[in-house]
Every structure is written in structure tokens, then in C-alpha cells.
Computed example of a mutant assay.
Amino acid sequence: MHEMAIAEGVLDIALDYAKKNNAQRISEIGLLIGEMSGVVVESLEFSFNMIAKGTIAENAKIVVKRTPLIGRCTKCGKEFHVEHYDFWCPECKDGVLSILSGREMQVEYLEVD
């Protein structure tokens, strides 16, 4: 379950930030998770809640913003939402593209007291 490792990373980031800013409590953690990241949000939240017990992040609300998988065809330049991992350009049918978004996995913001 790679969600546990991700949750540990998120908690480390949050606790480090809180410590540097003399925060007493972490109330909310905003995450940016790309469609292609493969993260199961429910598993991530469950894992985070387990490991945050007894820390200043206990009971912190996890807010997830999903980013769509968007590609740009390197042949014709069309930008499109990649659905079902179908990477073929709907315009020119070429299969070579660059990924513009959808692989994100980051802490976007923290709310602390």
C-alpha cells in the first residue's frame, strides 16, 4: 500500500512546517493529487489518520484537489484530457505527447494554529 508511505511523507512535511512556524495544531492539509498518480484517496486518508494520532496533526482535515490527466500532442499541438490511459491524439491520431498535468502529488497548503 503506497498510500501509507505517502501519508508518512505528508505528515512529515506538515509537522516540519508546523515546528518551523511554532504552530500548536494542524487543522487542515490541502493536497494536489493527479489523476495519473494512482493514489486511492480513501486509503491515503485512512493511513494519515492512523499515523497522525498523538501528534498536532491528529484530526486534521485532508482536502484533496484532483488534477486531470492533460496531454499535448507533439505533432499537432492539440491539448486534451487523456481518458482511460488512451494517449492517442484525438485530432491527428499520433501517439506521442507530453504530459501537462495529472502526475501531481504534493502538499498544496497547510492551515495551522
Results as ranks from 00 to 15, higher is better:
H2K: 12
H2Y: 11
E3P: 07
E3C: 08
E3H: 10
A5N: 15
A5G: 15
I6E: 02
I6D: 04
I6Q: 05
E8G: 13
E8C: 11
G9F: 13
V10C: 06
L11Q: 14
D12H: 13
D12T: 12
I13N: 08
I13F: 12
A14R: 07
L15T: 09
L15I: 08
L15G: 06
D16N: 15
K19I: 06
N21K: 11
Q24F: 13
R25A: 05
R25H: 08
I26A: 02
I29H: 00
I29C: 01
L31N: 05
E35K: 04
M36Y: 03
S37G: 06
S37L: 05
S43I: 06
S43P: 07
L44I: 01
E45L: 07
F48K: 01
M50H: 06
M50S: 08
A52C: 10
K53W: 00
K53A: 00
G54K: 00
I56P: 01
N59T: 11
N59C: 09
K61R: 15
I62P: 03
I62T: 08
V63G: 12
K65E: 11
K65T: 11
K65N: 10
R66P: 01
P68C: 01
L69C: 03
L69I: 01
L69V: 02
I70A: 00
I70C: 02
R72D: 06
T74C: 13
T74E: 15
C76E: 13
G77Q: 08
F80S: 04
H81R: 14
H81D: 10
Y85K: 11
F87M: 10
F87R: 05
W88E: 13
C89M: 07
E91C: 14
D94V: 15
D94Y: 15
V96K: 14
I99F: 01
I99C: 02
L100Q: 09
G102K: 02
R103E: 11
R103M: 08
E104K: 02
M105V: 11
V107Q: 06
V107F: 07
E108G: 09
E108F: 07
L110G: 05
L110K: 07
E111K: 15
E111I: 15
E111G: 09
V112W: 01
V112G: 02
V112D: 00
